[in-house]
Design a protein around this nucleic acid. Sequence first.
DNA 1: GTATCCTCGATTTTT
DNA 2: TCGAGGATAC
Length: 792
Amino acid sequence: MPDQNARHPDDDLTLPAPRAGGIAARAAAALRPASAPDYFQGLNPEQREAVETLDGPLLVLAGAGTGKTRVLTTRIAHILALGKARPFEILSVTFTNKAAREMRERVGKLLGEAAEGMQWLGTFHSIGTRILRRHAELAGLSSSFTILDTDDQIRLLKQVLSAENIDDKRWPARQLAFAIDGWKNRALAPKDVPAGEAQSFAAGRGAELYAIYQARLRQLNAVDFGDLLLEPIRLFREHPDVLEQYHRRFKYMLVDEYQDTNVAQYLWLRLLAKGSSNLACVGDDDQSIYGWRGAEVENILRFEKDFPGAKVVRLERNYRSTGHILNAASHLIAHNQGRLGKTLRPQTELGEKVTVAGAWDSGEEARQIGDEIESLQTKGHKLDEIAILVRASFQMREFEERFITLGLPYRVVGGPRFYERAEIRDALAYLRVVASPADGLAFERIYNTPKRGLGDAALKQIVDLSRAEEVPLLEAARRLLDGPDLKPKPRSTLKELVQSFDRWSALIDKIPHTALAEQVLEESGYTDMWTKDRSAEAQGRLENLKELVRSMEPFENLRGFLEHVSLVMDADRGPGEDAVTIMTLHAAKGLEYDTVFLPGWEEGLFPHQRSLDESGRAGLEEERRLAYVGVTRARRRAKVWFASNRRIHGMWQSSLPSRFLDELPEADVDVIEAPATFGGGSGGMGGSYGASRFDRAEPFKSTYDTPGWRRAQENRGPASPGPGARRSGPMTIEGELVASSTAKSAGFGKGARVFHQKFGNGTVVEVDGNKLTVAFDKAGHKRVVDSFVKAA
DNA sequence: GTATCCTCGATTTTT
DNA sequence: TCGAGGATAC
């Protein structure tokens, strides 16, 4: 999506552009029929209520697959059709560019060109940028400020650390970046950082370094992502007249995925909502899975308190998935305590039960899933409608390898994205310097790429001069050429580089930006560098560079393109051939597939041990929400898998089925006994020791035959706890843990000698229900399920 | 400036 | 176990 900023001339806040008003008026006329407007067609009563409740704060609790986007877009159409506001008077915020793009498209379908006038539809960050550019001087910036990405941020922090004589081995820049991000997420300026936290970096210098970093940003006329939220907040607080302008401007405000907002975003919204108070937030507390990067579920849980008189509408009719899938998901998520309470109601038949199956190890898990996909394919299912959702990306590899063997087309979502590739970042760095010669970080990135013999020594001279004279790096380089300090060789190379940049910069308004980009890449020797490179990726990198130039075409100029890139960092990739999708659960939020495979439901992996260790119960609940997100991606088939052995950090570990399996309702789940392909796999393992397939089925069965499991069945109860009912968690998590670990044991006592297929012989040192701690003679202490060992 | 050795860490990720 | 990234040696 080309950024709107690039296309729309800056409008004046106080004088609405008449052109846009015309569009709105036409849209309104087109949409205003005699009776109920067409766009209400097919909305259920709750959705309609959410659309029609226009005045005052509104929270729409939209469960998975309940038509959330539809409500948002129809609401916009309704506001415009009633003439309550013009397109540019609606603030509509999303989290990702993808969501913003989709929203714009769908509004476009409803309204046609009126969607074009929606200048304030975008991500928190893009809207923040827009606001900040308008009032840059009030924030000590010029309106052409650059936006640093994570890489630039780290580079700058490294500079700060070295200038402050802090050993960056002991106190890595990454760690400081992480801390600063955390503070910014919570809208803390350097002076607001709690003393205790500042203490945690570089012997108490955390807040001080943060302050120095901020000062450096200002010097560079740059902001980081956090500033795009923080600076507008500061602006609004310190300049009530500015805030007032936006209050007048935004008649209606809509926020998507409200459960993902962090403190800064929340404050930002609160300030703006002091105007009209027509703030509609849509979200689902049960799908809050980004706590680890600053999202505060509390924001959504507290909505009614924060915005007095708020109306809450629950969307619970799910049009996506069949009954068993929804029942399973609802029952699972009901184990969480901190939630607003909401149960998905199926609108169609029960369909297929959710299946749960176990595999001996992760390799077998991948083989079985691969086989199942092939069989679905023979039955005529499209691969595009099949997804494998994993907890952690290392799980993907096994599937990829298997699918390559099978010749099964797949696509991996995630991974290094287009704009993060080294060659793209290098090319962009060149263009950034051309567009804004003061961009020191970009200059630093490419001043010796391709290698031109400018080493650290020359760089240090430039940096020192830049500091001493308080000028940008490029300017410092220029001055250095006039002085006596440079050796002849670097002098001539540097001179050529500086002159090249002067030449390119002069061309900015003279030739098309795509042609300029090509010229820069050519003359700088950058393309050459890859042409000469004999490595395997070089060809692909050259392709990427061409793709980059192509992607610049829709933009008016270089500046517009760079703005887009700094915020978007994401390139559309075409649909391509029919293929299975492999991605993380996090990446799957908002998507849906007919068939969803959910491998790796094992304790330690899912829920992830680290999440439990770091965040305790809150961590567990977020993991459970992730499981809920996973299951609710499925329209017709959800297939959960676990493996009893998995290689973690290169070492085989035996694993126990996830507690989340215990939390699925038996009535909606089929436990699959693995087909008899045991031992028929790759590698030398398996098969030879004559184990029966029940070796695998058994631990699973025993897990199910627990008091916790039975209690879970009894607690299934009616599907809906009723609006507003806060389910206090029908069963305690601790209870279930104890329950599943007090399952009947296969009868090994302390001191018994046992044999395990992977770990060999050992002695039982502890018995905890059906889980044994065994001191293996060779493999050390391990926890295993009793049915995996035999009496030795 | 580049090759090789070694050490460390190993969920999730957007802007 | 394996890979990236930094440090060291040439």
